[in-house]
Design a binder for these strands. Sequence first.
DNA 1: TGGAAAATGATAGTCATTATTATTAAAGGT
DNA 2: ACCTTTAATAATAATGACTATCATTTTCCA
Lengths: 163, 163
Amino acid sequence: MELNNHSFLPVSENQPHLPKNDQYKGVPHKKIIRELGLKVTQQRIQILEVVRSGPSHFTAQEVFEIVSESNPDIGFATVYRFLKKLSEQSFVTEVRMGGMPARYEWAAKDHHDHLTCSRCGKIVEFENQKIEDLQEKIALRHGFKLTHHILELYGVCGECQRA
Amino acid sequence: MELNNHSFLPVSENQPHLPKNDQYKGVPHKKIIRELGLKVTQQRIQILEVVRSGPSHFTAQEVFEIVSESNPDIGFATVYRFLKKLSEQSFVTEVRMGGMPARYEWAAKDHHDHLTCSRCGKIVEFENQKIEDLQEKIALRHGFKLTHHILELYGVCGECQRA
DNA sequence: TGGAAAATGATAGTCATTATTATTAAAGGT
DNA sequence: ACCTTTAATAATAATGACTATCATTTTCCA
Ligand SMILES: [Mn+2]
Ligand SMILES: [Mn+2]
Ligand SMILES: [Zn+2]
Ligand SMILES: [Zn+2]
């Protein structure tokens, strides 16, 4: 899958139905790191800066590269480690598509799923309560207690259909 | 995730609502290999034997191990290669969950999705037309032409809830 | 401000998968 | 059956995403 330069800018931005209730808006990075039960380091602040105000749906590698610009000494293990912590405590969500590297996104917003263009990589976020309800129903029917789910739609976006 | 010995036996077996319309039932392996535009080799026949009548939701490694019993000389690259061919031409479906190795299943049956127990690894197949329709609707709403999707439900099965 | 405890960066390791390549086997004509 | 072309194979090295290890540096609070 080829990805264009803008693949990771949230398409959500100009789509009113997209969920974006960041309950941590305005909370300083330091506070969040303490809330995780971790020590406050410059690296973690820099990573959080990217995670919270940089592009959505980023890979660990991308975060590493962005932080590297201002701090060339950071190690990528540090990025991986901290993203893992954030993901374990549900501050970021891991989104895995196919065999590609994991992508993360700041999770302090409502649950949603993804619609991805397999041509250009564009990602649209959506949420559909009817589908959520049906999933719950299916799980119950089989005696399962549902914990989470992955719903990823793939297709070709309008733009790419024309081209 | 710990997996028990029986995780990969299709739970589907004794569940009447499960789709299992193998349109290639009775068609010899050789014929299918030729249909793929490939040469008929002993290895490919052996792999197809496992894929078509062995356990469902197998990994490449598992297929390799099973074939190895009767043919200790087979190389695992051969298994990967052939599974890839089969998957490219939609004879098997690749199912990827999290960061785990890819699982495959013979695809000549109706489309379905999976409900997985994250405790014991049990997999239940299901299909829900309402969800499929809603997905189609969502894609259209965003101008996408839908090509495929991944819907994986995770939870704890009844058995594991008791234990 | 001293020092235990945690975090870091460098680096090596793991695991699934893919590429390379010399050797072998299949297909199709003779 | 034999030859020839071409594809497939097995062994092996390489890749890519992550994870573990560990010696060194930071944090933080008593
Ligand atoms: Mn998202
Ligand atoms: Mn299945
Ligand atoms: Zn596109
Ligand atoms: Zn279970």
